[in-house]
């Protein structure tokens, strides 16, 4: 297992498999979606070769840590098998839910932030960590609604999950920004509530605006564009508080040429270096 360094990395997508192998881009590490490597064949063959040269992080989207029904045994088993095969430096999932009543809903859905939900998330995270035999990271979500019966601010909720289960936090700075804009939160209050010792990784991504029928706009975390200036500014605030943390550039839609992602990672590396005096925050 290669540990993930406190450098900038990029999300590895199928479109870039061959280019990463051939060009060896100067990034510190790569992150993959766990669900994309649960089968065999071509994707796994590429990843097996790429992991020889880059530390790999595995980021899941389907475990549904917030499900009242508990974790799906079959999916947990697949995650465990993929992690055992790839031996990633970090394993992460989301503070959200996606399965209910036997159906997978193909999205990272928001939780009511209640004491009951906190107990359920903590039980599921504990089971996840026990099954893998390792600490995992849990990522704060983007959200487009709030539940009327929520009683706990999201930043206190995720901090409590980390405190109670011993898991780490994957701090998605873009998600904090998107949710803060959508719900009128102060993103710095969110950052200030996080214990730097629990932060294992930072995510950065682009988002879009959706104009609704009445002309109101809402920000959508679609990972379909470059990181915007406001999010870069919030990232500077984040690393000033949270320290030199491995930082990932994510792109899932409108995936650009590899060089564009590497350039964004290079920018993150420069900010990391400036904040923490790191001489080389990007090269592998």
């Amino acid at each position: 297992m290669s540990p993930i360094p406190a450098k900038a990395g990029i999300g590895l997508r199928f479109q870039h498999h061959r280019a990463v192998l051939e060009d060896r881009p100067p990034v510190g590490w790569l992150e993959v979606h766990t669900e994309n490597y649960m089968g065999g064949g071509v994707p796994l063959d590429f990843l097996e070769r790429i992991r020889r040269d880059y530390p790999i992080s595995m980021h899941g989207v389907g475990l549904s840590l917030g499900s009242a029904d508990g974790l799906d045994d079959a999916h947990l088993g697949r995650v465990a098998a993929a992690v055992a095969r790839i031996e990633p430096g970090l394993v992460s999932e989301h503070l959200s839910w996606s399965t209910a009543a036997g159906h997978y809903l193909a999205d990272l859905l928001p939780l009511p932030l209640t004491e009951e939900a906190l107990d359920i998330v903590c039980a599921n995270v504990a089971r996840f960590q026990e099954r893998l035999g390792r600490r995992v990271l849990v990522e704060n979500p983007s959200s487009y609604l709030r539940f009327a019966h929520s009683t706990i601010p999201e930043w206190e909720f995720i901090a409590a999950v980390a405190r109670r289960t011993g898991c780490g936090i994957l701090c998605d700075v873009n998600n904090i920004f998107v949710s803060a804009c959508n719900h009128g939160w102060d993103p710095l209050v969110y950052l200030d509530a996080l214990d730097p010792a629990t932060i294992g990784e930072i995510h950065l991504a682009g988002h879009s605006f959706k104009t609704l029928a009445n002309g109101a706009t809402i920000r959508i975390d679609d990972h379909g564009s470059a990181v915007i200036d406001e999010v870069w500014n919030l990232y500077v605030e984040a690393i000033a508080r949270l320290g030199a943390v491995p930082t990932l550039i994510e792109r899932d839609n409108n995936v650009p040429p590899l060089a564009e992602l590497v350039a964004e990672a290079d920018h993150a590396a420069g900010l990391l270096a400036r904040a923490h005096g790191l001489h080389d925050a990007h090269a592998a």
Partner: peptide, 15 residues
């Protein structure tokens, strides 16, 4: 206060 299961069931059926 609705339970988490009640909320998730309604959300899922609605989607």
């Amino acid at each position: 206060m609705p339970t988490l299961r009640e909320v998730q069931s309604a959300f899922a059926r609605g989607l």
